[in-house]
Design a protein around this nucleic acid. Structure first.
Lengths: 204, 204
DNA sequence: TAAAGAGTGGACTAATCAGTCCAGTCCTAG
DNA sequence: CTAGGACTGGACTGATTAGTCCACTCTTTA
């Protein structure tokens, strides 16, 4: 059932160790990418040993799956906290500002953690599936927000909310990629503004 | 002046060897990424030897710079051939169709070669600069197209063509990333349609 | 308290990697 | 034709990597 069959920790101590490994691996992967993150580095950062890592994970690929899931929860939690209370286009623009501010705080470095994982892992079936699910959940968050806006405003135009969510996500990802390249949030701002104008035109 | 000072080939034979190395490296990097492309693999694919590679490149990083430049020329040449003859919004939509078709032909695999390089190399100063230049040239191609459309239609609304190019490029990159993840061109189509509608609204 | 199994420490291996080195061959200029 | 430099082949090195293995400790339970 679970994607990771090997060595689910049975004790509290085991759970803590596994969590420490995933936490350290996630941070290193976000900073340097999967290929540039060695297991030795993960062990050093999490203060664990080889036998512990292989006690909980079949191999590096298996650990990477756990990293994808952990990173997904982090990213979605961040956006969920902004999108949950959404009930107007003004709220959507506040979300935009928050996303831009987040990017600015890190000097546009790293781009989107999930987007980076895509370009590194999309040719491997299982990681790609997991990332596709992550983006589907992200879209669902946006769709829920759009629905709340529609409910508040009373209007209910006939349009596909999922498609709106897809293009907003595409604008976000593309904007972050260009922002990462130019080390300026300009592209991200413009892309999100376009996407939100698009939402406004089709929703209201 | 040039970014690569070491071992510019002086003879025709030398030029051919260097070109073969860059060609093979570019193909391998596009397929597997920089970190997963070993120099030994490049040598095997280009039928050259270690001493040849280090005769023309200082180290792997230096080779990667050449790969970025080569990949840039490939991508820009592809789009230039479509955008050069641009003089109407219908032409822009034909470019959209061509981009989508190109993605479909490879089953959405790999995404944009330049976009993938960004997420792998954007934290290294020199590669990042080179990629920023690549995107700037790409935007310039789009701006030239927009100007041609404006000239043809006679209208000349006051709007920043560079900003329009930025958001079109962002939509393209984000759309390709999501297409790569979902193995469907749907997101790419929607993102480009949104961007072109945006261009139409601000240009015409 | 004693057995059983979960959890741990770290040495070890085999493969792979980037990069070095040197003995050559090929080409061209004088 | 010959010297010098461009170019080439490939063996070699040292570092790093993923993954194995076994002796050991801790914790729970009967």
């Amino acid at each position: 059932m679970a994607s990771i069959e090997i060595g689910q920790p049975l004790t509290a101590r085991g759970k803590a160790t596994r969590a420490r490994i995933v936490e350290a691996a996630t941070e290193l992967v976000r900073a340097h990418g999967v290929a540039n993150t060695s297991l030795d580095a993960v062990l050093a950062a999490s203060d664990t040993s080889k036998s512990q890592l292989y006690h909980y994970f079949a191999d590096k690929d298996d650990l990477v799956l756990a990293v994808i899931q952990r990173q997904t929860e982090c990213v979605l939690a961040t956006h969920e906290s902004h999108l949950r209370k959404l009930h107007s286009l003004a709220g959507l623009r506040r979300w935009r500002d928050a996303v831009v501010e987040l990017s600015r705080q890190t000097d546009c470095a790293g781009g989107c953690p999930l987007g980076s994982l895509v370009s590194e892992l999309a040719e491997s079936p299982r990681p790609r599936e997991l990332l596709a699910e992550s983006f589907a959940r992200w879209e669902a968050l946006l769709v829920a927000g759009f629905r709340a806006i529609q409910a508040r405003s009373g209007t209910r135009r006939d349009c596909d909310l999922t498609e709106l969510a897809t293009v907003v996500l595409a604008a976000l990802q593309g904007g972050l990629l260009l922002a990462q390249t130019t080390r300026s949030t300009r592209a991200l701002e413009l892309a999100l503004d376009m996407a939100i104008d698009h939402v406004e035109a089709h929703l209201a």
